[in-house]
Amino acid sequence: MDIRQQIEELGDQLTPTERKLTSVLLADYPFAGLEPIQDLSKRAHISAPSISRFVNKLGCAGFQEFQQRLVQELKHGSKSPIDLKTDSAIDHKAPLVSYLSRIDKLNAGLIDCVTPAQFTRICDLLCDPRRRIFMIGGRMSDSIADFFVKHLRQIRKDVFHIPSSREFWPEYLLRMRPKDVVLMIDFRRYQPNLALLSERVQARKGQTIFITDKWISPAAKGASELVSIPIESGTLWDSYLPAFALVEALLVPLAERDWEATKNRIAEWDNLRDVPQNAEAE
Rank of each mutant, 00 (worst) to 15 (best):
I3R: 01
R4I: 07
Q6C: 11
I7E: 01
I7P: 03
E8W: 04
D12R: 10
K20N: 15
T22V: 15
S23F: 08
V24M: 08
L26V: 06
I37R: 08
K42P: 00
K42R: 15
R43L: 15
S47F: 09
I51K: 03
S52H: 11
R53W: 08
C60I: 07
F66A: 07
L70I: 10
H76A: 12
P81T: 11
T86W: 01
T86S: 12
I90C: 06
P95F: 01
P95K: 07
I103M: 05
A108Q: 14
I111H: 13
P116C: 07
Q118R: 13
I122F: 00
I122C: 04
C123G: 06
L126R: 01
C127S: 15
P129I: 05
P129C: 10
I133M: 09
I133N: 03
M135Q: 01
G138K: 00
R139K: 15
M140P: 02
S141K: 02
D146W: 06
V149W: 01
R153M: 12
Q154K: 14
Q154P: 01
V159E: 03
H161D: 05
S165I: 10
E167Y: 11
W169Q: 04
P170D: 04
E171S: 14
R175A: 13
M176D: 04
V182P: 02
F187L: 06
R189V: 14
Y190P: 01
Q191N: 10
Q191R: 11
N193G: 05
L196E: 13
L197Y: 00
S198E: 04
S198W: 00
R204D: 06
T208N: 03
K214L: 13
K221Q: 11
E225C: 08
V227E: 02
S228G: 11
P230N: 08
P230T: 07
I231K: 02
E232M: 02
E232I: 02
S233A: 15
F244G: 03
L250W: 09
L254R: 02
E256P: 03
W259G: 07
E260Y: 00
I266R: 15
A267G: 06
E268P: 01
W269M: 06
W269Y: 13
L272M: 14
R273A: 13
D274F: 10
V275M: 14
A281F: 12
